[in-house]
């Protein structure tokens, strides 16, 4: 069973191309938001009272809103808020979730049962409704939104990472590690987490996409970032009032959310393909 440098199979090459494309678009959109101040033709808060609700034109390529603000610029700036929140929430949630989940899975016993029952309880509430309820309870605003989303969605990561740990916990190499004198902490950090993390990467990137949707949903309901901060969901919310006069106010932010969600899902999908090389066993 000598392993040689084999030429890549076709499925592997396709997986790599898919990943490269997904990564390219992800980076592209992140750059758009990061360099919004350079790319945007106008200040997102600048009002042009003589150009209110103007259809897309060469001057305002995505049109303007009810206050004459440039939608294109607002989308660029809005990306900063939306993506930042999505990244922050996913980062916090995956860190906490993975840590708790792996610890529970590895230690087992009472700690595990307690934690998992707690997770079950939290998961018994429908996620988005719970988030909405929480935000309306603790108040609107970016930080509160992040907090509410974190509280409701770490359980998913905890559950997945726990089950992943359970699947490798009884592996012989864990036994070997113990004989080699590794402490529990070391086993967790050096032997377990590096082996479950790749599988979780898929979930992490998928989560960014779904968080984007949640953020937009919350903002649409007016529970997100306060006006006048540009934010995609909030732009939708404003746009729905002018649906018939200025459909572009709804179309462009909606499209951009859609594209971003698709890209992040595509990215997670391509990572999965990349890590599950369906190569023949023989």
């Amino acid at each position: 069973m000598k392993k040689m440098k084999k030429p890549l199979s076709r499925s592997r090459i396709i997986a790599r191309i898919k990943f490269a494309v997904a990564l390219f678009f992800t980076v592209l959109f992140i750059c758009f938001s990061l360099f919004a101040s350079y790319l945007a033709p106008y200040d997102p808060l600048e009002t042009h009272y003589d150009h209110m609700l103007e259809a897309p034109s060469s001057r305002f390529i995505f049109g303007t809103d009810q206050l004459g603000r440039d939608i294109y610029s607002r989308i660029l700036y809005g990306g900063k808020t939306s993506l930042l929140i999505a990244f922050a929430v996913t980062g916090i949630v995956s860190f906490i979730g993975i840590l708790i989940g792996t610890a529970a899975g590895y230690m087992g016993g009472v700690f595990d049962s307690l934690l998992m029952r707690f997770c079950d309880t939290l998961m018994a509430f429908p996620g988005s409704i719970f988030t909405i309820a929480l935000v309306s309870f603790i108040g609107t605003g970016v930080t509160n939104m992040i907090l509410a989303m974190c509280l409701t969605s770490w359980t998913g990561f905890a559950r997945t990472s726990r089950s992943l740990v359970l699947s490798i916990k009884n592996n012989v190499y864990i036994e070997q590690a113990k004989m080699g004198g590794a402490s529990d902490w070391k086993i967790l950090m050096v032997y377990i987490i590096p082996n479950v993390l790749p599988a979780l990467l898929v979930n992490i990137f998928q989560s960014i996409g779904s968080k984007l949707l949640t953020i937009s949903g919350l903002s649409l309901l007016g529970l997100g970032s306060p006006p006048p901060t540009p934010e995609w969901g909030f732009m939708l919310s404003e746009g729905k009032n002018f649906m018939y006069q200025a459909s572009w106010m709804l179309t462009f932010p909606g499209l951009i959310i859609l594209i971003n969600v698709v890209i992040f899902n595509f990215l997670s999908d391509s990572i999965q393909d990349l890590m599950n090389p369906k190569e023949s066993v023989w």
């Binding site: 190499y173 036994e175 070997q176 590690a177 113990k178 004989m179 050096v190 590096p194 082996n195």
Partner: peptide, 19 residues
């Protein structure tokens, strides 16, 4: 524990794949 060491049957599963 260091006084007692063990070698197992399946070579590949005795190793953490990423180490």
């Amino acid at each position: 524990r260091r006084s007692i060491q063990m070698v197992f049957q399946d070579p590949l599963s005795s190793f953490s794949p990423r180490m």
